[in-house]
Design a binder for these strands. Structure first.
Lengths: 254, 254
DNA sequence: AAGTGGTCTAGACCACCAT
DNA sequence: TGGTGGTCTAGACCACTTC
């Protein structure tokens, strides 16, 4: 007789987990400024009751909100909104891979189609057995004005597959890693990035509509799959008048 | 009579939670390369048995490892090491506040003690009611060679407290936010950062031993407390021959 | 069919904060 | 004293992978 009432409702296939639905609801409310100015959010017990889910499920939802820095919790007191949203555009996933895939509102323009080349140093850094790498060059545009040029290097086989897939348009929204992901889902697990300032190379300057020899931002990114194998190496030059590297940081989640 | 055996062992005060102990154990093993080369890690059931804890507690430990990108999990298959550790120095908390507090191996040198100044634009950005801000200037050194200069701005009261606390040495390891945290623990919850390339300002160039007008990296950071109130504004110029901004990214945790 | 990780529950005890 | 979040358990069902 411990049954029938208070039993878990089975979840349809393709339906999101309960904690993700609660997460989404709370996130919407936060974005609407519902709990601004230090007001306390509903307690776990309250939400557990209201949504008809266990306290652990509610906690799971809060975990994600805390990890994103949208909310902070004080034992014995309650849960409060972080109010980060007030300060400029809040990116959902702070400093994460997805930010690079997004580049919201920008377009890419292929300047050099994918081709095989011999590049010893690049091949070494991609941990390839030979010197042959696949290379391509593209520009990024915002409102039709170019702000960055990127040289992309891939292992030859991957370059081959990318070329065949036609996932990369000659011009349009999207990114190389976005294209890679489209036919190899989950292939990219992480990346290293090194950013520095250099005089803009002479051949790059006109492409990003920038004065010769002026300071520009240079970003070098190496993408890895889950096994730690390099998947892509990208070197970008940005016109600093049109682009700055933005990053939001937060304290580590408890 | 549901008791006595299989009952939870109560945890002493000041003792770490069980899931954190398991997390630490697994992390050590990972750092030793125990599960390298795609070997599968122990399953939840296995660890649950071995450590005498429930499966949920084991899951909690794995959650943190996944969030750090040290490990990835495949439903139906198992848990595997990410092998990110192979690629250069792995920072524990990727792109998080703690990275800025660390600046491992570097020192700071105070060039201008804290003083009150009238700075309209800065005060506005710190959301202060008046134009008065507390300002200080410091250099960062690595192996006695200066690589960056930072101008720091604080709300006047906070500057006052910092000056009185003497938490900031004239020279030595440490950072301003580290000093702030020392007498206001948990005060800093997040930060925004904007990085761009500029010609090095004439007065800054000699301080970072860099040629006049050459490209340098400019980082502007705004720190916030949990309520979203700005706590500090820092503008840094880096000698790109001696310093590059490094960042590791990873996919969002599941 | 057996094993894996993903989700979820109902209940418990704790330390801490408010009153 | 009652409410809050933090930890933990024992057990359940699921989808998916492997055999």
């Amino acid at each position: 007789m411990t049954d029938s009432a208070s039993r878990r409702v089975p979840r349809n296939v393709r339906e999101k987990p309960a904690y993700q639905r609660l997460y989404a609801d709370l996130r919407s409310e936060l974005e609407e400024g519902r709990f601004a100015d230090g007001a306390r959010m509903p307690t776990e017990a309250e939400l557990s009751e209201r949504y008809g889910m266990s306290r652990q499920t509610v906690r799971r939802a809060f975990q994600d909100l805390v990890a994103e820095g949208l909310v902070y919790r004080v034992p014995g007191k309650g849960t409060f909104a972080s109010n980060f949203l007030r300060h400029g555009h809040y990116v959902r996933s702070i400093g994460a891979i997805e930010d690079l895939q997004a580049f919201a509102g920008t377009e890419m323009e292929l300047l050099q189609r994918i081709e095989l080349r011999s590049e010893e140093e690049i091949a070494r850094r991609l941990e390839l057995p030979s010197k042959v790498v696949a290379a391509l060059v593209l520009r990024r545009l915002y409102e039709d004005a170019p702000f960055g040029l990127t040289r992309v290097f891939l292992p030859p086989e991957l370059g081959q597959r990318l070329a065949e897939s036609e996932a990369l348009p000659t011009k349009g929204p999207g990114t190389v890693i976005g294209a890679l992901e489209s036919f190899m889902p989950g292939s990219i697990a992480g990346a290293n990035q090194v950013i520095t300032a250099v005089p803009v190379p002479p051949d790059v300057a006109p492409q990003i509509e920038y004065g010769a020899g002026q300071p520009c931002l240079r970003a070098e990114r190496t993408y890895f799959d889950a096994h730690g194998t390099p998947v892509e190496l990208a070197v970008s030059f940005y016109n600093p008048d049109r682009y700055a590297y933005r990053l939001q940081m937060r304290r580590r989640a408890t």
